[in-house]
């Protein structure tokens, strides 16, 4: 008889945590990261200055591990576990949201690998002292550039879909109408992050600073 008393199990809490960490802190960090890197759009100096400021925040190691590295490791690692428990059927049912479901898994993995590599090259190899010049140099390598672009697009997509998923899955967007609005929000976030991310890349690669005029004032 299966009528045993059912209780919330650990996987419920882990799944909830996975969903939450995707937005907070991982999504929020991504926003902060894109924001601070946008400094490159102003000037190399502005970028280096922003970078230096970030490197000098109090409790930096603690903040980095507690709010960035560990949540990201958990979100990525548990995400892979979730992937293994699903079985995509998008070839049989090629519906938009089913495509998003499958794409969310691949972009998540790409983003995870990319972020790992990105951290390694820009945070650990440089001991957290990456400068405009070092990034600029890295991006002269076409392979690096491509990988950066893919990583940015995958992360942006994953965050956009993730926001939609989050709002549906926490019941914050429950009605069909609300879910449509949540989807539009997701698209907006995904597209905005993609555009900003690519602009930042262009800035580094071509030494292009569209907001340089701000400084002259």
């Amino acid at each position: 008889m299966s009528a045993t008393e059912s209780q919330p199990d650990a996987s419920y809490l882990l799944r909830k945590l996975h969903s939450l960490t995707g937005i907070l802190p991982v999504g929020a960090f991504l926003a902060e990261h894109f924001w601070s890197n946008s400094a490159a759009l102003v000037s190399a100096d502005k970028y280096n200055q922003t970078s230096a400021e970030l490197q000098t925040i109090p409790f930096r190691i603690f903040v980095e591990w507690a709010f960035i590295f560990l949540p990201m490791l958990f979100h990525g690692g548990y995400g892979v576990w979730i992937w293994l428990r699903g079985k995509s059927n998008v070839s049989q049912y090629p519906w938009v949201k089913n495509w998003l479901y499958t794409a969310q898994r691949y972009t998540g993995l790409i983003a995870f690998v990319y972020i790992g590599w990105h951290l390694y090259t820009e945070r650990f190899l440089t001991q957290g002292r990456s400068t405009y010049a070092s990034v600029e140099q890295d991006l002269q390598n076409p392979l690096f550039l491509t990988f950066f672009a893919i990583g940015i697009l995958a992360s942006s997509f994953h965050l956009g879909v993730g926001i939609w998923n989050f709002l549906c899955k926490w019941g914050l967007a429950a009605t069909v109408r609300a879910q449509r609005a949540a989807g539009q929000l997701g698209v907006l976030v995904g597209v905005t992050f993609s555009v900003v991310g690519i602009l930042i890349l262009i800035s580094f690669r071509f030494d292009w600073h569209p907001f340089a005029s701000y400084i002259n004032k």
Binding site: S11, Y12, R15, K16, I82, R85, G86, N89, Y93, W95, K97, N98, L100, Y101, W164, N165, C168, K169, W170, G171, L172, A173, A174, T175, V176, Q179
Partner: peptide
């Protein structure tokens, strides 16, 4: 929690039941 929001259910339901709304409500 095993629902991953692929939302195929609501498209396949022959009775047009708002399943994704139900999932969201119960989730909340």
């Amino acid at each position: 929690e095993d629902c991953a929001n692929a939302q195929n259910c609501v498209k396949a339901c022959p009775k047009g039941i708002p399943l994704t709304e139900s999932l969201a409500e119960v989730n909340r």
